[in-house]
Design a protein around this nucleic acid. Sequence first.
DNA 1: TTATGGCTTGAACGATCGTTCAAATCCAGT
DNA 2: ACTGGATTTGAACGATCGTTCAAGCCATAA
Lengths: 192, 192
Amino acid sequence: MKFDRQEALHQATDLFWAKGFHATSMRTIQQAMDMRPGSIYASFGSKEALFKQALQYYAANSQARLAACVEQADSPLAGLKRFITEVVMGCDQAPSSMCMLVKSITELTEDNAELLLEAKRLLNGMEQAFAEVLAQAQAQQQLSGDVDSTRLARYLQMQLMGLRAYVRANGDAKEHLESLIDDVFQFPQGES
Amino acid sequence: MKFDRQEALHQATDLFWAKGFHATSMRTIQQAMDMRPGSIYASFGSKEALFKQALQYYAANSQARLAACVEQADSPLAGLKRFITEVVMGCDQAPSSMCMLVKSITELTEDNAELLLEAKRLLNGMEQAFAEVLAQAQAQQQLSGDVDSTRLARYLQMQLMGLRAYVRANGDAKEHLESLIDDVFQFPQGES
DNA sequence: TTATGGCTTGAACGATCGTTCAAATCCAGT
DNA sequence: ACTGGATTTGAACGATCGTTCAAGCCATAA
């Protein structure tokens, strides 16, 4: 039976996502992966390197899910809304209700500067993906071309961060989520 | 020279705030407090107990600063806006740009259930303080009485979470902060 | 069957973790 | 100056941390 690198990385990602970088020990990772330390270090290098690859794995997955939503839906905007709804409504079944990238940026300091930078970089990639979908919506006249799609994406990202953090802090807010999502999708039209 | 419990707790709070619970070791706390382990354990009990008291110290401070803003300002709403502006604009000089309560709720899991619960409880207290200020504004007819001040406070808290998390993830967003704060203060007037 | 080369194993390393406690120190009351 | 109780000290504990590596295992080629 050959060792499945992808599956092992998936297990590590879920663990890191749930417990964070510092609270996850290599011993629990060894258990979750069903691998011995030597093999893990041969495949992934170190705990930091493994975490970095987990971040990348997570980000790639997220972007793929956004792309799938947009492709399946009738319009870019409907796809985006569906993605956000799925993320927010389903986040109590995920390893953590928070985005793993945001959670990592929250936890990490300059003591792990490289990991912090990578998480920021990947989160920026998500924001750009949002911006591209919004630009698509503008190209199809589903959204006014007056507003800057980059600024809209930034606004959207901030709202999503607030939403998920709030759910994490106060889980019984699920009753209000749909109306909050509707609020978020009434984009601000003001200048600046 | 008598040992200053308040000052020691302040140092510990800033350290926990900056680095989080798991990444802060008792040894660095001993250094920051300039105290030996025996004294710390005699005064605070354990690392968990110390962290809990740090959370309470932080929350009390935050509520006091909100109260001071409201008292100094011309109106409750102006005070609230001033508080939020101060928090958001000054958060790059604080130990962390994130609220310590939110950061703790993000980091902690059921492995430290008691700390997680306490952080949620204290954050809820902040939300209630917001709601009280908003109710004051309604009583003075500065804000429409049609909307539920509790719901408005929840919305405000979520926006503030998003704002600070976004600043943490993308520090060069400060140019957009004022307009974002203005957006936040155009409360949603829709039903439920 | 045997030799070879790469992968897996798990005991063990030094460092650091949170925590304890006997000894040293301090200070108020006589 | 002396004493007694409270406080402070810092060495040391067992546990666990991330990591290493010699030894064992197994599939393939001769």
